[in-house]
């Protein structure tokens, strides 16, 4: 029988999760080890975000469990077949996040707080891909960044790093 834990989101929703799934989070793992987690584990993450986090963890979990049982060769073969599935899943996952940037940023914070390095790195890359190849004005618009420079300051900065702003 798999050991289950109850996670409580900041808006008091309860998520029942297998131990193996949530132990990917170093933060939660420590909480369990410290014995702080009798009953519900309270987390500073909204239910909407937590659902996304768990979606990610479950997907990861499948991969690691299956691979543990195989020998080298079988493992490689399986990985190859699974790679396509995972890519497809990740594409869908990132498309959803691109469409809802609030969730994307909350997820970034949550992955940092819960200490999920793989998710954090995945999300950082996702944002980097969104930023790459765009001019500052486009990036500001995309993420609602307020330009608080005066036109003079802006001019001075562009002049200092002229090489980076030329097309």
């Amino acid at each position: 029988m798999a050991i289950m834990y109850a996670l409580k989101s900041s808006d008091n929703e309860i998520f029942e999760v297998e131990q193996k799934v949530i132990e990917q989070s170093e933060t939660i793992k420590k909480m369990i080890e410290d014995g702080a987690a009798t009953g519900e584990i309270p987390l500073q993450v909204s239910s909407k975000t937590l659902a996304k986090v768990l979606e990610w963890c479950k997907q990861r979990q499948h991969k690691t469990v299956e691979n543990e049982n195989d020998d080298n060769k079988g493992k490689r073969k399986k990985e190859r077949d699974e790679d396509d599935d995972i890519k497809e899943w990740e594409n869908k996952f990132s498309d959803e996040l691109k469409a809802d940037k609030d969730v994307l940023f909350d997820l970034l914070l949550a992955s940092n707080y819960l200490d999920l390095p793989a998710l954090l790195s995945f999300l950082c890359q996702l944002v980097a891909d969104m930023v790459a190849g765009k001019m500052p004005e486009e990036i500001r618009r995309m993420f609602n960044i307020e330009n608080d420079f005066t036109p003079e300051e802006e001019k001075a900065i562009t002049a200092e790093h002229g090489w980076a702003f030329q097309p």
Binding site: V127, A132, P136, I145, F149, I157, H161, A164
Partner: peptide
């Protein structure tokens, strides 16, 4: 971390986004 995943040119360019 995000900036470090950009090319140097794109990374430097982010300096103008805001203070």
């Amino acid at each position: 971390d995000i900036i470090s995943r950009l090319s140097l040119r794109e990374a430097v360019r982010t300096c103008i986004l805001s203070s």
